[in-house]
Design a protein around this nucleic acid. Structure first.
Length: 520
RNA sequence: GAGCUCGUAGCUCAGCUGGUAGAGCAACGCCCUUUUAAGGCGUGGGUCCUGGGUUCGAAUCCCAGCGGGCUCACCA
């Protein structure tokens, strides 16, 4: 627990102060405190009240909070109490609180929790302040708070000791139009979740919870985490997606379902990837991917309005309007964003054969654009890779990319007129993918074939290829109505709405390697 | 997993081409009854991330490791 002798000594010293506080007749760890207001309530109610009004009608209040600043003045003193992210000044005079309470005040440290009663006034400089009459001790900070002006700026410390980060409430993107405090990031995240639930609840969707531990990790292409159930003596996978269970529910007659929950993928970590992340998935019977495109724009617009009061957001130096959307087919996007350095733009026919697609790869490589390509891989996979290499960085403003190759979409329905392409889209904001949606494949025989193809790729060494899920095929065999389904990354959407540039800034306790203190 | 980069007091940071570690905040003591990054006087606080190496001498240079950040890869 202790970082140093300094901390150990400080702890002992505070322990001694607790004894003295106890000797003053205060409980050292009392069980409750009854306040008349929270600090935000005081501000909401009396922000505009003048000094004269406060003097004329003495307003008695009691509030509780954590001491975040304290200034002694001999036989008086000022302190700032913080509660729910807001601070209110208190003024303590020996004359007014009495000998014992003033001794208590002298024993207080930065970080301590106290309750005070008193009346509101304005100081010489006009600051709304409580003129304290009694102090009640509530809890002690046994460790030193971070630097009072800068707070904690060490990113590692912020993530490891989020509890400190939150009450010091340090700033992200300082000085920019996207400046935001840590606490507000997580308040917005909560609002976002509420807005999404509101969106779906009012449209007749029901919220469900499906297994997080699954015997077959399906519904996405990713390496799973493995765990073990002792009594059943079976390995289970932490889910990589809820998809296949949610579609079983549509078979079961829940025409509109959604789930907001964690997915786990045993993959790399980056500013856009955390091993556990929160995903919204929703399914709507009788809808196709066109319906979902319209719905997607509506969701994002409405959520932005509810969370930020505007569809304008700032991310990494870009102003983004979440109310204005573009749509390209994947092939159109490749042509649209084809780099000049790689010569003339491709023609739409170039996507029709492996040879012409491979030629595009060669042109990109000649232009020193890194692109993964294995000769003999399916044409659709090559096209998807080209899209990612060429277009993704340009998709700063909200953009829907539709019509994906069948080869990379084992669960999507083919386009009636182009069987090598499926009714699938992804949407991008700020240069990264936020969501993925498609008209769900509901033909059990076709689904079985797709799984078998995936199995072949798996045997060929692709660890992320889908496994066979017999029960899911059986569910489809009972009849899945035409259905549209979509997944939206909640962490990433939070990033877009808060301007946080790292996914770790929107996850309260992001995964870090264990850190060993000298004592361990 | 790879490349680059950072790691000095509880916190925020300085410390030059190598000469044996500093400031502010916080802490401790004293003074101060409208202050607010309060102020004044004084005091204590260091495994300079860890382990090797080079050197008369290493926070500083070199190597390895640990942890963080960024970029790339994988992926959403």
């Amino acid at each position: 627990m202790f970082e140093s002798d300094f901390e150990r000594n400080l702890f002992a010293l505070r322990r001694e102060k607790l004894n003295q506080i106890s000797a003053l007749g205060q409980q050292t760890y009392p069980n409750q405190y009854t306040a008349t207001h929270t600090i935000p309530e005081i501000w909401a109610k009396y922000r505009e009240t003048t000094a004269e009004e406060l003097e004329a009608h003495r307003i008695q209040v009691s509030v509780a909070g954590r001491i975040m600043a304290i200034r002694g003045q001999g036989k008086a003193g000022f302190a700032h109490l913080q509660q729910n992210g807001e601070r209110l000044q208190i003024y303590v005079r020996k004359d007014d609180v009495g000998e014992e309470n003033f001794l208590l005040y002298k024993l207080l440290d930065l970080g301590d929790h106290i309750g005070v009663t008193g009346y509101l006034f304005r100081t010489r400089t006009g600051e709304l302040t409580i003129h304290v009459q009694t102090i009640t001790f509530l809890a002690k900070a046994m460790l030193a708070l971070p630097e009072k002006y800068h707070g904690i700026s060490d990113i590692e410390l912020r993530y490891r000791q989020r509890y400190v980060d939150l009450f010091t409430n340090s700033t992200l993107n300082e000085g920019g139009p996207d400046e935001i405090r840590v606490r507000d990031v997580f308040i917005k995240r909560a609002k976002l979740l509420k807005a999404i639930r509101n969106f779906f609840d009012t449209r007749g969707y029901i919220e469900v919870e499906t297994p997080m531990m699954q015997p077959i990790a399906g519904g996405a292409a990713a390496r799973p985490f493995v765990t073990h159930h002792n009594t059943l003596d079976m390995d289970l996978y932490l889910r990589i997606a809820p998809e296949l269970y949610l579609k079983r529910l549509v078979v079961g007659g829940f025409d509109r379902v959604y789930e907001i929950n964690r997915n786990f993928r045993n993959e790399g970590i980056s500013t856009q990837h955390n091993p556990e992340f929160t995903m919204l998935e929703f399914y709507q019977a009788y809808a196709n991917y066109h319906d979902l495109m319209d719905l997607t724009e509506e969701i994002i617009k409405q959520v932005a309005q509810e969370v930020n009061g505007t569809t304008i957001t700032h991310f990494n130096g870009h102003e983004i309007d979440l109310g204005k959307w573009r749509r390209f087919s994947m092939r159109e996007a490749i042509i649209e964003f084809w780099p000049e350095s790689a010569g003339a733009k491709p023609a739409i026919e170039d996507f029709n054969s492996e040879a012409t697609a491979a030629a595009l790869v060669e042109r990109l490589r000649a232009a020193r654009i890194h692109i993964e390509y294995k000769p003999g891989e399916p044409l659709g996979k090559t096209i998807a890779t080209i899209f990612e290499a060429v277009a993704e960085d340009h998709l700063i403003q909200p953009t829907i990319i539709y019509d994906f190759p069948l080869a990379v979409s084992p669960l999507s329905k083919q386009k009636p007129d182009e069987p090598d392409w499926v009714e699938r889209f992804e949407f991008y904001i700020a240069g990264f993918e936020l969501g993925n949606a498609f008209s769900e494949l509901n033909d059990p025989e076709e689904q079985r074939k797709r799984f078998e193809d995936q199995l072949k790729q798996r045997q060929g060494g692709d660890e992320e290829a889908h496994q066979m899920d017999e029960d899911y095929v059986r569910a489809l065999a009972y009849g899945l109505p035409p259905t549209g389904g979509e997944g939206i990354g909640i962490d990433r959407l939070t990033m877009i709405l808060t301007g946080a540039r790292s996914i770790r800034d929107v996850i309260l306790f992001p995964l870090l390697r264990p850190h060993h203190t000298p004592e361990e």
